[in-house]
Simulated assay, not measured.
Amino acid sequence: MNLNLASQTALVTASTGGIGQAIAAALAAEGARVIVNGRSEASVAQAIEAIRREHPAANLVPLAADNGTAAGCDATIAAVAEVDILVNNLGVYEAVGFFDETDEAWQRLFEVNIMSGVRLSRHYLRQMLARGRGRIIFISSESGLTPAPEMAHYSATKTMQLSISRSLAELTKGTAVTVNTVLPGSTLTDSVKKFIADVFPDATPEEAEQRFIAENRPNSLIGRFIRPEEIGAAVAFVASPLASAINGAAIRVDGGLVRHIA
């Protein structure tokens, strides 16, 4: 399917690995000019090399900036004045019991997970509205709908993204700008692969995945981890002109993990 993205410029924050890199690759595969972002020039260069191995003709632009800070967002905006697509993918998480989550930890996750998207959207959405077209996509998590007790602060930021996204979507009425949120479920990134290998050291990667899902994600209807490329494909569609009727939505790409209907 041609998603008609060849003339579009996309900024994907935190796109040097995992879901972010898969989103950047999916957009690039559809012909978009993609700004690959990470905190260091080395990590950005490695991601660009990896994407080009799969997509040699990819139009990729490097951007080293820490968008988890106000100064980093300012640097991004200075380097990239306008975009057609903004994917607010940057986010950090940690598994810590509620009673051990310090004020500093709460503030750090709020600054990175929330304020990065707020600052960038404040700049780029204004321009999209002036042009009458554009896409903003927040990458949340199924934890935004099913909060995890071992990650109360992370879950809270993922829920807050749903509210922010819907609020911004209300500003787009009567335009071809859309603002949506995509909620991935448990996804098999490199860090997750290492984690489950440590949990099940005597199992093959396939066995470790099956055991982890059976023991920890029994609600999953697909019975496996989601692949980053599956998230990338969903985001690329939502970013495309073909998804023009999707606005203000929370789109679950969770493998059926979340049971409620809404």
Rank of each mutant, 00 (worst) to 15 (best):
Asn2Ile: 04
Leu5Ser: 08
Ala10Val: 12
Val12Thr: 12
Ser15Thr: 10
Ile19His: 04
Gly20Lys: 12
Gln21Thr: 00
Ala26Tyr: 09
Glu30Ile: 02
Ala45Arg: 12
Ile51His: 05
Ile51Tyr: 10
Arg53Tyr: 06
His55Glu: 14
Pro56Val: 08
Leu63Pro: 06
Ala64Val: 01
Asn67Lys: 00
Gly68Asp: 13
Thr69Gly: 13
Thr76Glu: 11
Val80Glu: 11
Leu86Asn: 08
Val87Trp: 02
Asn89Met: 09
Leu90Asp: 12
Gly91Leu: 09
Val96Ile: 13
Val96Arg: 09
Gly97Arg: 15
Gly97Ile: 14
Glu101Pro: 00
Ala105Arg: 15
Arg108Ile: 10
Asn113Trp: 14
Arg126Asp: 15
Met128Pro: 07
Glu142Trp: 13
Glu142Arg: 09
Ala152Asn: 11
Tyr154Ser: 02
Ser155Tyr: 12
Lys158Trp: 12
Ser165Thr: 13
Leu183Thr: 06
Leu183Tyr: 06
Pro184Trp: 09
Pro184Met: 08
Asp190Val: 03
Lys193Asp: 01
Ile196Val: 14
Ala203His: 13
Thr204Ala: 08
Glu207Lys: 08
Phe212Asn: 11
Phe212Pro: 11
Glu215Gln: 14
Ile222Lys: 05
Ile222Thr: 10
Ile226Thr: 14
Ala234Ile: 09
Ala234Arg: 03
Ala236Trp: 12
Phe237Cys: 04
Leu242His: 09
Ala243Cys: 11
Gly255Arg: 07
Val258Ser: 02
His260Arg: 12
His260Asp: 15
